[in-house]
């Protein structure tokens, strides 16, 4: 058998390309973009918010400053996808247990039933602790507006749905500066694996 020599320059070239690609792998910015006064791009941003968490404490954008977080929408009596979503969020919670730069923010879409006391009970049963994982409640219209306009998920009351609400099982990844960087299906384990990889990537930014 004759051996073919690969020229060194080719190897170096391939190496550089691979290296270059790795450095360029960055998460996209999602949502509507605007052009700023200086002609720069203004990425979609989560606006200010203020909700009560399971410990009766206010949670706002200030608590998320400099953190990356995963947001989702659920309700405690949801019979269908929420339990799956919570199973997956618990994986994330455990995975980043030692990392204070990571938060989870779960909004109830049934605030009439899911008051602070119900959320506290739910949190206790799942071993969820604030501030790393806030379960929040508030005014229904505020939560729905934030969900649809800012996190780009559907959340609506619908008497025909099991449990009385329609909502997507999405997990939304938000970066240190309130930009949406990824949307994942929180009911699928593989999608959540992907989310965990992306979180690790985002923490390096």
């Amino acid at each position: 058998m004759q051996q073919k020599r690969i020229p060194l320059s080719k190897i170096v070239f391939v190496f550089l390309v691979v290296l270059g690609c790795q450095q360029e792998k960055k998460l996209p910015f999602l949502g509507p973009k605007e052009v700023g006064k200086q002609g720069d791009t203004l990425y979609h941003k989560i606006p200010d918010f203020k909700f009560l968490n399971q410990d009766s404490l206010w949670v706002s954008q200030k608590d998320m400053a400099g953190k990356i977080y995963v947001a989702d929408f659920f309700f405690t009596t949801c019979p269908t996808i929420c339990p799956t979503m919570k199973t997956q969020l618990l994986r994330i919670f455990d995975k980043f247990a030692e990392d204070d730069r990571v938060r989870i923010l779960s909004h109830t879409i049934d605030p009439e039933y899911d008051g602070v006391r119900v959320l506290k009970d739910y949190a206790k049963k799942l071993n969820i602790t604030s501030p790393r994982w806030n379960l929040v409640t508030g005014k229904k219209s505020d939560i729905y507006r934030l969900g649809e306009k800012s996190y780009m998920v559907t959340a609506q009351e619908d008497a025909n749905e099991e449990g009385g609400f329609v909502h997507s099982g999405a997990f939304i990844l938000v970066d240190q500066n309130r930009h949406v960087r990824g949307i994942y299906d929180g009911t699928k384990e593989e999608d959540v694996n992907h989310l965990i990889e992306d979180m690790t990537l985002l923490l390096k930014e």
Binding site: P83, K86, L90, K125, L126, N127
Partner: peptide
């Protein structure tokens, strides 16, 4: 069938 913590 392992359930979920103290909830299920």
């Amino acid at each position: 069938g392992s359930g979920l913590k103290d909830l299920y």
